[in-house]
Amino acid sequence: MIEIRQTSPLNTVQDLGRFGYRRYGIGTAGAMDGLALAAGNRALGNAQNAAGVEFQLFPATICFQRDAAIALTGADCAATLDDKAIPPWWVLPVREGQTLKLSAPMRGARTYLCVAGGIDVPEVLGSRSTQMRDAFGGLSGRYLSAGDVLSAGPHAAFRFRDSFGFGIEPPESALTPNLHDWAGENEVVLRVILASEAPQFDDASLKAFKTASWTITAQSNRMGYRLAGPTLRRPDPTEMRSQAIVQGVVQVPPSGQPIVQLADGNSAGGYPKIAYILQSDLWRLAQSTPGRTLRFSVVSLDDASRARQQVSQYLNELARFSSHCRMQVGR
């Protein structure tokens, strides 16, 4: 049992998202940084898709009412357990009565708390993700608030070889950063595949899309990120029919400033699309806060497939290493 003692709004229970209900217009929801959630789960021996808590507004205080095993992944939020510092990307045992505190990250945007067995909320339409728009899934379809109690699902008992727990390698160091000719040291490079309306933009706009630095504006959240940069022009503004859209699509409304649709974004829309961010890179965007700048690097479907292989290799290695750090008991 995990008691939320203190929390800011906007923190929710999420798994890797809801699929199979788009016929009702229900979007995916799910963790913004699905890779951090998946890594935390694999480190604990959970199913990759088990639910965890996504923290995106701090501070938060959590009290454990039972012994448990947890993983903290995603942004480094200077976590402490009973006032002792816990490194980021750490997997550890916690005891009944211990208190975990999370503070606003210096870098990154979202921290994930995974627990052995996963957060046990009812599955709604095939997922435990909170669907804020229609208020279902997660914990009663809403943000967590002080006093909420979450429980962990059943799991095979294990002990840690080292009572301090163990660290796992964050994707930031395990996966090679993307390259871009113009990117500065602190810029995030996102790989994209051009979308069907890309040729409708004028040459200068297409070039600007690929070379310019894009700033994440304050109007950026789980629904989507609005970017600021050069104005992208589509000389012949034919009206589009509304189409179903996916996470990571980069749309260009008539203002010429791109919008990236994300986890809680619309499931359909009619703005022209210039590109799609690779799924393998969405975690980089999810961990980027307003004010940071981005570059887009256009890649091929083959590059996308290699990127996916790297991600799954990373997760498999992390799971193999983690299984060494845990010992099955009672078998």
Partner: peptide
């Protein structure tokens, strides 16, 4: 998953 649009169809695939 799949989702019809206006005279269009989105098909989400497990790559």
């Amino acid at each position: 998953d799949t989702q019809p649009g206006m005279n269009s169809l989105l098909v989400l695939l497990d790559p």
